[in-house]
Design a protein around this nucleic acid. Structure first.
Length: 510
RNA sequence: GGUCCGUUCGUCUAGUCGGUUAGGACGCCAGGUUUUCAUCCUGGAAAUCAGGGGUUCGAGUCCCCUACGGACUGCCA
C-alpha cells in the first residue's frame, strides 16, 4: 500500500464530450481527495490516436471547472509529474513492457489483425469464445512459438508487433476493492491482453498502471466497467515489482438510464429530453449538438448535489449539501454497490432549490444581458422587485420571461383556457367599473388599489375570485403570476388602465 | 456463451453489531394558504425487503441455490 499522501487521478479519454457519469467519477475522486487533504490530478489518456476528437480535452477541462471540481496538477496546470498527457509520455512506456518480457511475464506477438479476426470467427463458428490465452497462445505467431533468430529478425524489420502479457496458469488473483470487498478471479479466465500496441503506444492497461505508479497515485477510483480488468492490473503491478505501492481500488457503480436498464447514454438524453453532458457539445464532424446542463439552465451547485447523491448518501436525512459539506461528509464506505437510475425530476428539484437560494441581485445580473434586448429601458430597481415576486415559481433561470413578461410588456394574447374559465358574460361590464375605480385611485399603490377594489366587490355583492380572475386576465393575459395589485402598482396606473381597456375590447370581440 | 458485479416504495436511498409500525427524499394523490399559477405547509397511497431454501427463539440484515439485471469479453478506454 502507498503510505504517502492521498493522491487520486481523474483520467478520461478525449474521445468526445465528458458524460455526466464521468463527472460523477471526477466528483467522487475530488471529494475523497479533499476530505483527506490529498491531491487530485487530471491525466488525459489519449493512447488511442484513432479515437482522438478535436476539442474533447478542452471540453473536459471546462466542464470540471464549471462544476467546481479543481485539480492540483495535470493537463492545463502542470505539476511535478508532467507531462500528464499520455501521448506526450510515449517514450516512457516501452521500457516497462520490455522489462516484463525480460522477466518472462510478457512476449512479442506478430499475428496480424486479419489473422486474429479469422481466428475469432472460426471460434465463433463453433460457438466458442475466442480468447488469446494460455490454452492457445502456442498456436499463434509469437516469441513463444518462433525461434529467437526469427523473433529478432521480425523486430528488427518493419514488421509490426505487439507485446502481450503472459497470464499465469491457474492462479487465484485477489482484488481488494474499497466498495465491493474482495473479488477473486482465477487467472485461467484471463486472456493475454495486448499491453503494448504496434503503433508504439501502450494500451490503457499498461499506461494506467505505469502512470499511476510513477505519479504516486494512492487510490484508483473509477467506474465499474473497469472491475473485470482489475485482476490484470494487479498482475501488472506484481510483475513490474510495484505491488508494495499498488493503489487501493474503488469501483463505482454505474449510472443507469431513467427507464429500463442499462448504462445511461447520449441517446437516452435525446430521447427523454434531459442533458447527459455537463456542457453543450457540438460534434466537430457531424456538427450535431448535444445539450448540456449549463446551457439548459442548471446551476453547478445543483448538478453537484444531485450527482453526489447518485450512488452515495450521508446516512443522515440531510439532502442539500454544498461542495464543502460534501467534502466533509463524503466517504467511500457510504457509496452503494448497485447502479442508480438517473432521475431528471429530482435534478429539477435540486435546481429549484438552488435557484431559490440565489440572491435576487445575482439573478438580476444573470438576467440583465438578455433582458435589455427585450426591455429597452430596464430599471434595475424594478427588476429586483420583479425577481423577488417571481423567483419561487422558477425552476430555471430561462423561465423568467415566461413568468414575468407582463411586468414589462402588455399581453399580446390571452390564454385560451383562462378565457374560457374566467371570462363571463358580465365580465366586460364589471371590468369597466373596475377600470373607472382604478382611474380614481390615488396614489396608485397596491394597498390602496386593493382596498378600493375589495370595497367595490363587497358593495356590488360580487364574488372576489370572479372579479380578480377576470382582471388578472386583462393585466397578465393568463391565470398566473404574483399578487395582482403589486403587479399593477409596478406597471403603473396608465399601463394598467390601458391593458384593461384593450383587454375588454379584445375579449368582447371573441 | 464465459467471467465478474449487483437486486429495499415508480425513482434515489436509510437500515452497516440479526429483534424497526421497514425511515427519509423526488414524483404522484388529497387538503390547507392565496385573487390565479407556482411556491409553501399538512396528510395519504406507495417496498410480501427479487424468489426459494436453510441457520436462529427471531433475518431486509448471516449461509446456499435460483431468477433477473448490468459490466466486461478489441493492437478502445
Amino acid at each position: 500500500m502507498n503510505q504517502d499522501k492521498i493522491r487520486v487521478r481523474f483520467a478520461p479519454s478525449p474521445t468526445g464530450p465528458l458524460h455526466i457519469g464521468g463527472v460523477r467519477t471526477a466528483l467522487y475522486n475530488y471529494l475523497f481527495a479533499k476530505k483527506h487533504g490529498g491531491d487530485m490530478l487530471l491525466r488525459i489518456e489519449d493512447t488511442d490516436q484513432t479515437r482522438y476528437v478535436e476539442g474533447a480535452e478542452n471540453y473536459i477541462i471546462e466542464s470540471l471547472q464549471w462544476c467546481g471540481i479543481h485539480f492540483n496538477e495535470g493537463v492545463g496546470i502542470g505539476g511535478p509529474f508532467a507531462p500528464y498527457r499520455q501521448s506526450e509520455r510515449k517514450a516512457i512506456y516501452k521500457q516497462y513492457a520490455l522489462d516484463l518480457i525480460d522477466k518472462g511475464y510478457a512476449y512479442y506477438a506478430f499475428d496480424s489483425p486479419q489473422e486474429l479476426d479469422a481466428a475469432r470467427k472460426s471460434y465463433e463458428a463453433e460457438k466458442k469464445n475466442f480468447q488469446y490465452d494460455q490454452h492457445n497462445r502456442l498456436e499463434f505467431k509469437n516469441s513463444l512459438t518462433l525461434t529467437e533468430p526469427e523473433v529478432t529478425a521480425i523486430i528488427e524489420s518493419d514488421e509490426p508487433y505487439v507485446i502481450r502479457i503472459m497470464i499465469p496458469e491457474n492462479e487465484e488473483i485477489l482484488v481488494t476493492d474499497l466498495i465491493r470487498g474482495e473479488v477473486r478471479v482465477n487467472s485461467t479466465q484471463l486472456d493475454d491482453k495486448v499491453i503494448f500496441k504496434s503503433d508504439g503506444l501502450p494500451t490503457y492497461h499498461l499506461a494506467n498502471v505505469v502512470d499511476d505508479y510513477l505519479m504516486k497515485i494512492s487510490h484508483v477510483i473509477r467506474g465499474e466497467e473497469w472491475l473485470p480488468s482489475a485482476p490484470l492490473h494487479v498482475l501488472l503491478y506484481r510483475y513490474l515489482g510495484w505491488e508494495h505501492a499498488m493503489p487501493q481500488f474503488a469501483h463505482l457503480p454505474l449510472l443507469l438510464k431513467p427507464d429500463g436498464n442499462g448504462k445511461l447514454s447520449k441517446r437516452d438524453g435525446d430521447r427523454m429530453g434531459f442533458p447527459v453532458f455537463p456542457l453543450q457539445w457540438t460534434d466537430p464532424q457531424t456538427k450535431e449538438i448535444s445539450s448540456g446542463y449549463r446551457e439548459s439552465g442548471y446551476l453547478p451547485d445543483a448538478c453537484i448535489n444531485m450527482l453526489a447523491f447518485l450512488g452515495w448518501n450521508p446516512g443522515t436525512e440531510q439532502e442539500i449539501f454544498s461542495m464543502d459539506e460534501l467534502i466533509e461528509a463524503f466517504s467511500l464506505e457510504r457509496v452503494g454497490k448497485a447502479g442508480s437510475k438517473f432521475d431528471p425530476e429530482k435534478a429539477k428539484w435540486f435546481n429549484h432549490h438552488y435557484l431559490q437560494q440565489m440572491s435576487d441581485a445575482r439573478l438580476a445580473e444573470l438576467l440583465a444581458p438578455e433582458l435589455t434586448l427585450k426591455v429597452p429601458h430596464l430599471d434595475n430597481e424594478k427588476l429586483l422587485t420583479v425577481i423577488g415576486m417571481v423567483k419561487p415559481r422558477m425552476t430555471f433561470i430561462h423561465e423568467f420571461w415566461e413568468q414575468a413578461s407582463f411586468f414589462f410588456v402588455a399581453p399580446d394574447s390571452y390564454d385560451a383556457k383562462s378565457v374560457k374559465d374566467r371570462w363571463r358574460q358580465d365580465s366586460a361590464e364589471i371590468m369597466k367599473k373596475v377600470g373607472d375605480l382604478l382611474q380614481e385611485t390615488e396614489p396608485f399603490y397596491a394597498a390602496v388599489a386593493k382596498h378600493n377594489v375589495m370595497n367595490f366587490i363587497t358593495e356590488a355583492q360580487l364574488n372576489t375570485g370572479q372579479v380578480m380572475n377576470a382582471l388578472r386576465l386583462l393585466i397578465v393575459g393568463a391565470s398566473k403570476g404574483p399578487d395582482l395589485f403589486e403587479i399593477m402598482e409596478l406597471i403603473g396606473k396608465e399601463q394598467s388602465l390601458n391593458r384593461i381597456e384593450k383587454g375588454i375590447v379584445a375579449l368582447s370581440q371573441a
